[in-house]
């Protein structure tokens, strides 16, 4: 990995942190934060591997006590709470967004961007986060956890739209993924 890759990874970890400063918009009782936009953008701009590492680095910084999550939360405490599963899902989500983006890189358009963000930025996050709540709190069933997270869907739809529009424009203006999957074998 080149120094440039390290700098890209660091800049997206930083960007995710800055997105956490954007005040949450309340949709009903549910705060919608811009931070998971970082997951989608890291994957769609940097690709699978670097996107994964950027979010992993971000979580590492949170773990060592930087108050980078919305509301100035941070420290190891957030990794033991019932919603910690959503955090653990972020690097994985960025990886999947990046993977789909790389696979579709040559014919990449708004539809592909939306697909990548829905699969990686929404489905993967829920697939990890929802069972985690149920496992953590023995008495909360999977169904209850699922219903609870439905309230986040409107916010996610907005974020998918924003991230997809951005991904398409940044690909045109400053493409970072140089060796897409399918063009040459990338390990």
């Amino acid at each position: 990995m080149k120094t440039r890759d390290l700098a890209y990874i660091a800049i997206f970890a930083a960007l995710t942190a800055v997105l956490g400063l954007v005040p949450a918009i309340n949709v009903g009782p549910v705060p919608i934060t811009a931070q998971t936009l970082g997951v989608m953008l890291a994957g769609s701009v940097l690709g699978a591997k670097r996107g994964f590492l950027a979010l992993l680095l971000f979580l590492l910084l949170v773990a060592i006590g930087l108050p980078l999550l919305p509301g100035g939360r941070g420290g190891l405490g957030v990794f033991v709470g019932p919603t910690a599963g959503y955090l653990y899902a972020w690097p994985l989500g960025a990886f999947v967004v990046g993977l789909v983006t790389e696979l579709a890189w040559r014919r990449f358009n708004l539809a592909w961007a939306a697909l990548a963000n829905v699969v990686g930025g929404v489905l993967v996050i829920y697939a990890v986060g929802i069972p985690f709540v149920a496992v953590y709190a023995d008495e909360v069933t999977l169904g209850q956890s699922l219903t609870g997270s439905l309230s986040f869907l409107p916010g996610d739809a907005v974020k998918v739209a924003v991230a997809s529009l951005i991904a398409v424009q940044v690909r045109r203006a400053y493409p970072v993924i140089e060796r897409p999957r399918g063009a040459a074998a990338t390990p």
Partner: peptide
């Protein structure tokens, strides 16, 4: 609204990617 976020983040991303590039150099 949504458009505001897009028009803010696209130039921001291009700028910070350039920043990353120069820092790496």
């Amino acid at each position: 609204g949504v458009r505001a976020l897009v028009t803010l983040v696209v130039p921001l991303l291009v700028q910070v990617l350039q920043l990353a590039h120069t820092t790496a150099e």
